[in-house]
């Protein structure tokens, strides 16, 4: 076989990939997430806190500086060392789309658009899964299965979350129009609510399938640990979809 023939053979490997219409949005959202995470990390990092204190030390009175140091050594440092509480949160944001969106709604003021949760990035989710493997004390064999299940379900969970966010933001747009006394297509509102209800239901089903598979990998003790860390019963009780009676009253449907 000569070089030209090799080139011809290699050219038989064609890929027909599609453009991602949401790529711009996803990239910008990740840039924003990383900027926020890096800022939070700086605040959480005892070293950078120490540096900041040292930088400002000349401007602080002796008593304030002492107070700051006592605070760091009694609250901040031990908290940092012991607390890894963001990991379950990151994990829950993925495997529990319904509750995660619900929390997101609660923390967003008025009818502003809700944002994509930070934990939806695969990298952060991977970190949370690794962390969980350690905490639940999985064997290497179990870890492989555990990761495989998570990889299989990741796209479905993220897809559901994205759809819920999209629909919720559409709904919020309707609310903004209503408040500003502009015309709203009530049929579209109804369709939106119906779609939200369907997706919440779908999220519950996917979550149950996922948990069934996870529990098959874990032994009884590990199952207990998993449930304890993630408050699993909560996962099995998704928030009800919007209160339909209230919505109908509000919108006079």
């Amino acid at each position: 076989m000569n070089d030209k023939e090799l080139k011809n053979i290699l050219s038989t490997w064609e890929v027909d990939l599609k453009k991602d219409p949401m790529l711009h949005e996803k990239v910008k959202s990740r840039i924003h997430e990383q900027e926020v995470a890096s800022f939070e990390n700086q605040l959480d990092n005892p070293l950078s806190f120490g540096l900041a204190i040292r930088r400002f030390l000349p401007y602080l009175s002796g008593i304030t500086a002492l107070g700051a140091i006592i605070f760091l050594f009694t609250v901040k440092f031990p908290g940092k060392m012991l607390d890894n509480s963001s990991m379950p949160e990151v994990y829950r944001q993925i495997v529990d789309p319904a509750n995660s969106i619900k929390q997101n709604l609660a923390s967003t003021e008025g009818f502003a658009d809700i944002k994509r949760p930070i934990g939806l990035s695969r990298t952060r989710f991977g970190e949370a899964v690794s962390w969980l493997e350690d905490r639940v004390r999985l064997t290497p064999q179990q870890s492989m299965q555990f990761e495989k299940i998570h990889n299989e379900y990741y796209d479905r969970f993220v897809g559901l979350s994205s759809q819920l966010i999209l629909l919720e933001n559409q709904y919020r747009e309707f609310e903004r129009l209503r408040i500003s006394d502009r015309e709203v297509n009530l049929l579209s509102v109804y369709d939106n609510l119906q779609a939200q209800k369907d997706i919440y239901q779908q999220a519950l089903q996917v979550q149950q399938l996922f948990l069934n598979q996870i529990f098959q990998v874990l032994d009884a003790e590990q199952e207990g640990l998993y449930g304890e860390i993630l408050s699993t019963p909560k996962l099995l009780n998704p928030p009800s979809a919007r209160n339909e009676a209230g919505i109908k009253r509000e919108w006079q449907i």
Binding site: L17, L23, R30, R122, T123, Y154, D155
Partner: peptide
């Protein structure tokens, strides 16, 4: 395929 989207996004970030 499952990693492609993620890595493409990360490249642009």
């Amino acid at each position: 395929v499952s990693w492609t989207d993620e890595l493409v996004q990360e490249t642009f970030v």
